[in-house]
Amino acid sequence: MRLKCPANFRIVRLPCTGKIDVIHILRAFEKGADGVYVVGCMEGDCHFKSGNFRARKRVEQAAKILDKIGVGGERVKMFNLSSGEGPLFAQYSIEMDKKIKELGPNPVKVALQAKKKAA
């Protein structure tokens, strides 16, 4: 399809989005990610019945925690699409890239970089 999408994100493959846990999302932020988005199958189409619903709940939990610690819950989002929707995948990545750029870099990463510079 040769679709265009941003080159600044890394894909972490999971057997099912139901495998994702809050800690995986938080660790990404701890390691300096500016945003995380989870792409699962269409709701109701999960091969394991409820994997994508579980993922959505965990994404919401992670967002709540990120809000409370001042990193920003809007940096994490869940999308649903089917495996045949490549153009939509590209569109979501562009959407997320735009949103994260508007939000600016991860404040945890900024604080760590500032500390390194000062040292």
Partner: peptide
Amino acid sequence: KKEVEVLASALRMHFIKEGNE
């Protein structure tokens, strides 16, 4: 163990952000 991991990660990030690592 899971809750410990999540809380530790959240606290670490919060205090780094606050400049109080």
